[in-house]
Write a protein that binds this DNA or RNA. Structure first.
Lengths: 285, 285
DNA sequence: TGTCTCTGTTGCATATATGCACATAAGGGT
DNA sequence: ACCCTTATGTGCATATATGCAACAGAGACA
């Protein structure tokens, strides 16, 4: 049974009783209604209506069509209402992918957003690898570095974050404060993998002798522990470093201005909750 | 939402993931699937799918379409199965209209039919007036007399019944046995209304003096009571008269050969239970 | 009785949807 | 490196469905 449109026509006809009324109701022509019914009956091999000069009377099967059509119509309309009404769509999960390091930029906005739309849940896919927006693995991505060049994804500039070298007080007590002149003698902490979209990590791997990188991990949080334990010099956002009085910001290297970008697939940017969340992200720039 | 066909297409696409698969499944062309989806999305103003080079991934709304479509599909298919499968259709009510006098012809067949199809219920509309098959008041009609000439109804010859004049033993004891020569002196029982499709009733009204018709009623059963109480001469089927030893069949008038006809609307004759019941009626001719 | 409006029905011109062929891109296997 | 298969996307010719207009019958009303 693939004649769903004809089925709806039959349902309206059974409900209203005449071709003319059904046609007006459906916004099509009388004759179209008639031919759709003829077609449907021929297809099913059963009569759905008894015709007379006064109109169309549903047979037992026709009454079943009416009953079923009514249910279906309500369900479809409810779906359309729900899908069309923005507020009703402000629910479900919003999946965001980013490297762990960027998650902290997100949560102030998420917090604010959830106050307004408590039914939207967030799922942060904090991982090294890039999740593919194209395959629906995530709704949004936050990326760093050069402006991503994609085909199906829309790229929106997000924050320009400042990144600094820093070291913990414990390290200073043990090894002294690294300076511009002697940093090449100190210990460094870095991600064990070379990841193109982690620019400062690349900087360490290219600018620092391999032997200086004494602590590595594939997890950002582990590196953070190492930093706070005084294992060596690491990289952090300026903001995070300033908030911790035990962290010393070092004048080593340059102060990085790293651009971040919001990525969203062009097919889902118009989904209300996605759009509204992006709007709030923009305000937080 | 009147794009039910497109809705089904969207549901299959969401289920199968690619245009090609959905197209094959639906028996239409890839490009048709694509354009129907585009059309539906444009109509709803929301994206149902996220497109990529591997296929179509349903959005949250698209998943809802899939869920709803699945339910609807099952329901529609169940309907088609039920409506198509003859045995499954052998249920519900079968409405038959006839004058009370003919009902006794029906019940042997009904009895046999119900043994085979216990889920079919019968509703006999035994009344003087003709129920209109065209307006769905009844499924079948049994009519007497001349072959009915109708436009939308199919007429099938049924039984040729023999009708006789008869009188009860009580009447004979009181007034003597009516004969061919003296019947015009006797009392008659007739329906109070002149009904064209009750030929023997018409015969009485035209051939017998008004003053002779001493007992009338608009109900056949009442007339029957009057006959058995010995109130006068009445008309009955030969069969019924022969079964009652207290009834005398009189040689008055002619022995009528009355044709009876099965009437059924052309739109419902193909409904399994209607067709099968008619088949059994034919066997009982 | 005539008119008016309601119903379904049917032929015909046109608008719409469909299928085909081809272009394009990406991955898998040899 | 090449082929083969998978997938989507897009003009274009054609098939299909639609709307229109006209017709016929039935009932309401004056």
């Amino acid at each position: 049974m693939d004649k769903w449109t004809e089925f709806k026509t039959a349902y309206r006809l059974a409900k209203l009783g005449t071709l003319s009324a059904a046609a007006t109701d459906l916004g099509i022509h009388r004759s179209t209604v008639m031919r759709q019914i003829d077609s449907l009956e021929a297809h099913l091999g059963i009569k759905l209506f008894q015709r007379n000069d006064k109109g169309y009377i549903p047979t037992e099967a026709g009454q079943e069509v009416m009953r079923l059509g009514e249910i279906t119509d309500v369900q479809f309309n409810q779906f359309v209402d729900k899908a069309t009404n923005s507020d009703a769509m402000m629910s479900g999960v919003l999946k965001i992918t980013c490297v762990n390091e960027l998650a902290e930029l997100l949560f102030p906005v998420i917090n604010q957003f959830q106050a307004q739309y408590p039914n939207v849940r967030f799922e942060i896919l904090g991982d090294i690898r890039k999740y593919a927006l194209e395959y629906g693995e995530a709704d949004l991505a936050i990326r760093m570095g050069e402006k991503p060049h994609t085909l199906d994804n829309i790229v929106i500039p997000f924050q320009c974050i400042e990144v600094v070298m820093c070291v913990h007080q414990k390290y200073v007590e043990q090894h002294g404060l690294p300076t511009k002149d002697n940093w090449s003698q100190h210990k460094f902490i870095a991600n064990s993998e070379r990841i193109a979209h982690l620019p400062w990590n690349e900087w360490i791997h290219t600018q620092v002798e391999k032997s200086q990188i004494v602590t590595t991990s594939n997890a950002h949080q582990v590196l953070d522990y190492a930093l706070h334990a005084g294992c060596g010099i690491s990289v952090s956002t300026k903001k995070a470093s300033q908030n911790n009085p035990l962290l010393h910001i070092l004048p080593i290297g340059d102060m990085w201005q790293v651009n971040t970008w919001i990525l969203v697939h062009r097919d889902i940017i118009h989904i209300p909750k996605v759009r509204k969340f992006i709007d709030q992200l923009k305000l937080a720039r």
